[in-house]
Design a protein around this nucleic acid. Structure first.
Length: 660
DNA sequence: GTTAGGG
DNA sequence: CCCTAAC
């Protein structure tokens, strides 16, 4: 049966939780128009592209000028009226009545090297709670003409999946203007009418209705790989698309942890060759389980777009969390735009045919002839970024921050993982044939993931500019724009007990680093790349987008700041002295100058320390705490527990007396 | 505002 | 870390 991919909404790279300008201010500039212009004229070079491209050329991102036209979408939303770093975020972005959050949208073409690797999409999941690592989802059975085909010699065990041949592209320029598919239509298509979402069937149109894009109307979009085409690079005519469109990487924001593939612009890039991260900014992913939970309820209950909802559900059986509420017109537009392109191209292929026939054609076309394996990387998923900045930060710094966040993410030690039928292929020396990556049936379940590179994890991050610290807890425009104050390192108080001097700058130490992000994502990467089984309903990705402001309405969750060993040491020492139950004193004693550690935090930490000390070392996670410390924890805990018991025993009699 | 404990 | 009850 024909599967179609219905995707909803995310065709952009979003950096959530940056307060967005209020509607009023947004109106000042016709975002939509601008976005369209940018889209159609293809003049908005991806920031990402810029980063990656420049980086590939050896330039330091620090010196990367972010031109306006390169940041089309970003500035449309956030950087209004700004002239390089003079506008206060606070003024324009934070102190607004509506709680909407801004989204930095990076979505442009990535014009990197001509590597022949087909990166169809980079999606940035929104949901941090789903630590889905970057992932590449590939599918080889149904390349469209605008895709790159990964062609590999099955005997070449040294093959880099990026060094592959690529197919030509053939975008019809005329399609660039039509981008919004009719939702219902798409739904029907998916329902198995076997009609390929293409040219006519996919009569997309650009809706100029802002509301349409405002996240209130679910929309659909792209054809999935399930649309079978006969393969072969040769089949496809050279693209007439503008050069800019070529080698396009789409950055898509997603907040689900589900694997999904999306058809977007073909592109090339060298994911693994990006330089090391820029580590001096705090980037952090936000864990907000409760928010998501809440949003989830809303999603399930409030959506009346039945059709879409159905699809949504059927598509995402393992769905756990709501997608982003922050969907913006331009993003969708672009997305649809891409979709239409792709879909229209499908026409030329085996239109309306089931997958089987095409698959067969494919397998014979290359496998038997050249013993090559052609892979199509349908989607790259890059972990989401959360950025937090002080409201007083300048727009210029915001730009730099975003730049660095993206750079850090892309360049910060990502490696490629290969999965076949859900199983990780670890042996790099095996040939494709040996690994079973040679028959199309297998290739279908082949997936690539962008995984955190172990060698990069733990890269120390330091910041010399506190005003630019990135962190994650800023959904709320004003209330919590963190005051990342510069800790006065020299201000050691004359406390009776040592006030861990190194805690003073603990904002640095414990602030999340890009490495942390990747690490966290990686911890769950096993789910990240499950190749989409053909015909599986998950080919659909329709996302309701109503919960737009649900999250922003809630107080944001603080960033997670794991206790360092030093902090634990200090905590233990204080508790040994003061005992449990006097957390305020503990705080004052040992963490007085550490703002982000409240006495509740200390109490919680002690709780977990006790627990940690009781479990086997194998069960422990995170930075290992020296056993010596854990022993002290247990000792102190038991001691003070006894003391408390005694206290109560003492009081008991008196209480009895009082009662009498 | 603190403390304690569940989530 | 969050949330809350209880103090």
């Amino acid at each position: 049966m024909l599967q179609k991919r219905l995707d909803y909404g995310f065709s952009g790279y979003q950096v959530p939780f940056i307060p967005r300008a209020a509607r009023s201010s947004r109106k000042r500039r016709p975002i939509r128009e601008k976005a369209v212009a940018v889209d159609n004229q293809l003049c908005a070079f991806d920031l990402l592209a810029t980063v990656a491209g420049k980086l590939l050329e050896g330039e330091s991102s620090q010196n990367l000028p972010i031109e306006k036209d390169q940041l089309g979408d970003v500035q449309d939303v956030v950087m209004q009226d700004q002239d390089e770093g003079t506008l206060c975020l606070k003024d324009e972005l934070c102190d607004k009545g509506d709680n909407e959050v801004a989204s930095l949208n990076l979505e442009l073409g990535l014009q990197v090297q001509d590597q022949g690797c087909n990166v169809k999409e980079i999606s940035v999941p929104q949901n941090d709670a789903s630590p889905a690592p970057a992932s590449v989802i590939t599918s080889s059975h149904c390349p469209e003409k605008d895709e790159y085909l990964v062609k590999m010699d099955t005997n070449d065990d040294k093959s880099d999946f990026c060094s592959l041949s690529r197919s030509t592209e053939g975008f019809a320029p005329g399609h660039t203007d039509s981008c919004v598919p009719n939702v219902n239509e798409s739904v029907e298509d998916h329902d198995g009418k076997g009609e390929v979402l293409s040219g006519n069937g996919l009569d997309m149109h650009c809706s100029e209705d802002p509301e349409f894009f405002d996240g209130n109307s679910p929309a659909v979009a792209s054809s999935d790989c399930s649309i079978k085409l006969s393969l072969g690079v040769d089949h496809y005519p050279c693209g007439s698309l503008s050069p800019r469109r070529d080698n396009n990487v789409k950055v898509v924001t997603r907040d689900d942890d589900e694997n999904s593939s999306e058809c977007t612009q073909p592109s090339t890039m060298k994911p693994a060759r990006l330089p090391a991260r820029i580590g001096d900014r705090r980037i952090r992913k936000l864990l907000a389980s409760k928010h998501w939970r809440l949003a989830s309820k809303v999603k399930d209950g409030d959506h009346s777009d039945t059709g879409l909802r159905c699809i949504y559900r059927s598509r995402r059986t393992g769905y756990k969390r709501p997608r982003s509420q922050r969907i913006y017109p331009f993003k969708k537009r672009k997305f649809y735009h891409y979709s239409s392109l792709l879909n229209s191209d499908v026409d030329d292929g085996c239109k309306g045919n089931g997958s089987s026939s095409c698959d067969a054609g494919q397998s014979t076309s290359f496998a038997s002839r050249e013993s090559h394996v052609k892979l199509r990387i349908k989607s790259f998923r890059v972990p989401e970024l959360f950025i937090e900045m002080p409201e007083t930060a300048t727009v210029g710094s915001l730009k730099r921050t975003v730049m660095e966040a993206v750079t850090a993410l892309l360049g910060g030690g990502l490696r490629v993982g290969v999965r076949l039928q859900g199983k990780k292929i670890r042996d790099d020396n095996r040939t494709l044939v040996q690994s079973g990556i040679c028959h199309d049936d297998k290739v279908e379940s082949l997936g690539f993931t962008l995984e955190p590179n172990p060698s990069h994890i733990g890269t120390p991050v330091s910041s010399e500019d506190n005003s630019l610290l990135l962190s994650t807890d800023v959904p709320q425009p004003v209330s919590r724009c963190p005051t990342l104050s510069v800790n006065n390192q020299g201000a050691s108080h004359d406390h009776p007990v040592r006030n861990l001097g190194n805690f003073v700058e603990s904002d640095h130490d414990s602030a999340p680093s890009p490495a942390e992000i990747t690490a966290e994502k990686g911890s769950v990467d096993s789910r990240a790349l499950v190749a989409l089984p053909e015909g599986s309903p998950q080919a659909l990705a329709v996302v309701p987008s109503h919960q737009k402001s649900k999250r922003s309405e809630m107080a944001q969750r603080r960033i997670r700041r794991p206790f360092s060993v030093t902090e634990v040491e200090s905590l233990v020492q204080a508790v040994e002295k003061l005992g449990t139950g006097r957390w305020r004193d503990v705080k004052l004693r040992a963490f007085d100058n550490v703002k982000h550690r409240t006495y509740v935090d200390l109490k919680d930490k002690w709780k977990t320390l006790v627990h940690t000390a009781r479990i086997s070392p194998q069960q422990r996670r995170g930075e290992p705490v020296p056993q010596e410390l854990l022993d002290r924890v247990l000792t102190a805990h038991s001691y003070w527990s006894q003391q408390q018991a005694k206290q109560q025993l003492k009081q008991q009699p008196s209480d009895a007396c009082l009662l009498l």
